[in-house]
């Protein structure tokens, strides 16, 4: 159980950020740098695919909170998809599903960006 990986690909106008492994206080800066890179290019439609993520702590949650305002101010959003039950429970524990749209599939989430 180790490591954290990020793989970002553009799908239509959406930056799809696939994250896997363990997102904690040690690895959160990697996601922060990725979001920084995406938004600095003027891309504000971000979909985070959680399919490979095994663990998240508050440091990881803080990365999403740190960018959501900027992204929405610029007409975009951070949406999420393919989150396993274990990770969803942490989001739900803190009420995060009230702020972020979470979809079962990546296709649904990308479609929602077209609204």
């Amino acid at each position: 159980m180790s490591g954290f990986k990020i793989d970002t690909k553009k799908e239509e106008s959406v930056s799809v950020v696939r994250i896997s492994g363990f997102l904690d206080a040690h690895t959160a800066h990697e996601l922060e740098a990725e979001f920084q890179g995406i938004t600095s290019k003027g891309d504000y439609k971000i979909l985070v695919n959680f399919a490979g993520l095994d663990y998240i702590s508050s440091a990881g949650l803080g990365v999403f909170m740190g960018f959501i305002e900027l992204v929405r101010e610029n007409g975009g959003d951070i949406k999420m998809c393919e989150m396993n039950v274990k990770i969803y429970k942490i989001f739900d524990l803190l009420g995060f599903p009230n702020l972020y749209e979470i979809f079962d599939t990546q296709a649904e989430a990308i479609e929602k960006f077209k609204d």
Partner: peptide
Amino acid sequence: KMDEYLKNFKVGGLGILI
């Protein structure tokens, strides 16, 4: 208070609550 926290896009300070 999570309602206010989320509404105001706060960052950090969740460890003890968790």
